[in-house]
Amino acid sequence: MSVHAQAIEEEGHGTGSLGVPNLKLAMWAFLGSECMFFGSLIGTYFFYHDHSLAGPLPKDVFSIGITSISTFLLLMSSLTMALGVDAMRRANAKRSRNFVWGTALLGLTFVGFQVFEFHHFVTTKGLTLATSLFGSSFYVMTGFHGAHVTVGVIWLSIVGWMIHRGHFGQEKAINVEVSGLYWHFVDIVWIVIFTFVYLLEFAK
């Protein structure tokens, strides 16, 4: 068996000239571009920081308690995701499905917290997308992150369903792994936003 054919069998998926699975290569390239995307959004938030002329300021609206809980849930969802990928690598499909669905559920809870936060900011605190530079840059940045989490929740729900129906077995573990890479990325973006946007606001 040629090395190439062996690689295909090992990965159970298309392997390109770089000797790595194309799917995984594509995901890492995508995540690299996502670094630039979120880097710009977070940079823009700080560029406009302290320049709002009207409306409530970050300190008036942020609640460290609530955001800490949702942050913790998202962080733990990365752990369950890693455990789900690990279970699939070791051909434990049922365990993998449970962890993947559990991850989606934690993600959904995070989105729920964000919907609550946005609703609270708009109705009680009077901060909308058009209120100030803070409102615009904050909602665009965290909104795009929330949209990424939502996409991840849908994706993981489908992955869990595919495992459940027996479509993804150990030979297709890379499908679970790649969805996991995306999920972990969404988590690290939040690690940055939580520290730089929320915590540092109260550190001054």
Binding site: L25, A29, L31, G32, C35
Partner: peptide, 11 residues
């Protein structure tokens, strides 16, 4: 490489 280079650019 694919991840760290754009990450460095973003930073």
């Amino acid at each position: 490489f694919l991840f760290m280079v754009p990450l460095a650019l973003a930073v």
